[in-house]
């Protein structure tokens, strides 16, 4: 059995880590360097940096953050926000990132996924999807932090991304994001049933039990969490302890 990965997600705006609700109403919760190091030392299995305004402005801010992080963080990390070209990907990998998450640019130009997968390997290309519920068992792909509709169906888009060579999917539920009301189980289930590449689920975790429930019910092995850590609701060791008690394997020692 594969070990469940717990990923600490840091949404970055300018010099700060922020947290919102439904990707809006942003609140500053700390500095990227401090929080990354804290979660690294607490046993996060990976880190995820998302610059939530980069695609509207520029990505130099994120590049600086990544450069600093890779000096002292020795676990894999993924970077997203404003990545638009093969050159961008190269720069982030050079700065020490292991994977890049692409959202807006991929919806505009799906071939970017296949080109990037060929050039850098599928394992470092993460397709980031912001999903919003549009009726029963239907979810639409959004971009720019839930601000813009694309008209794409989430399930169809994931199928296509797999064919294009994406290595992983980061699936953020806009409806649940920041609410601490639990994951969108229906959405996650309907994707984990067919997906052949790993799905990182994000959005809604409010307790250790929410995380356990999602893993158990949806047959998912990777969870990205933010609020629960930033607001000290549960720590990474507590979350892992809870999973171990339910016989779910995690990385225990580091």
């Amino acid at each position: 059995m594969k070990k469940v990965r717990i990923i600490a997600r840091l949404d970055v705006k300018g010099p700060n880590v922020i947290k919102g609700v439904h990707l809006e109403c942003l609140r500053v919760v700390g500095k990227p360097g401090d929080l990354a190091e804290k979660y690294y030392l607490e046993g996060a299995d990976e880190l995820l940096y998302m610059d939530i305004v980069a695609s509207l402005y520029r990505r130099d801010n994120l590049l600086n953050i990544v450069n600093q992080a890779s000096d002292k963080i020795f676990i894999p990390f993924t970077v997203g926000g404003g990545i638009r070209s093969l050159q961008d990907i190269k720069e982030f990998l050079k700065a020490g990132a292991d994977k890049v998450a692409i959202n807006t640019a991929a919806t505009e130009n799906p071939n970017l996924i296949s080109k990037a997968a060929r050039m850098f390997g599928s394992q470092c290309i993460v397709l980031s999807i912001e999903a919003k519920r549009r009726g029963d068992n239907k979810w639409e792909v959004y971009t720019n932090n839930g601000r813009e509709r694309t008209g794409l169906d989430v399930i169809e888009w994931i199928k296509k991304a797999e064919d294009l060579g994406a290595g992983e999917i980061l699936l953020t539920s806009i409806d649940q994001e920041g609410t601490k009301k639990g994951f969108d189980i229906e959405l996650i289930k309907s994707i984990s049933e067919f997906a052949s590449i790993p799905i990182i689920v994000s959005g809604g975790a409010g307790s250790s039990d929410d995380i356990y429930k999602c893993i158990k019910e949806c047959n998912i092995d990777t969870i990205a969490i933010a609020s629960i850590l930033h607001y000290n609701i549960s720590s990474i060791p507590q979350i892992k302890q809870n999973l171990l008690q339910h016989n779910i394997q995690v990385r225990k020692r580091w």
């Binding site: 890779s70 020795f74 990998l93 050079k94 700065a95 292991d98």
Partner: peptide, 13 residues
């Protein structure tokens, strides 16, 4: 190869 930073930093550490 592109990512030589992490391995460099690990030795620096």
């Amino acid at each position: 190869i592109n990512n030589l930073k992490s391995v460099s930093m690990a030795f620096q550490k």
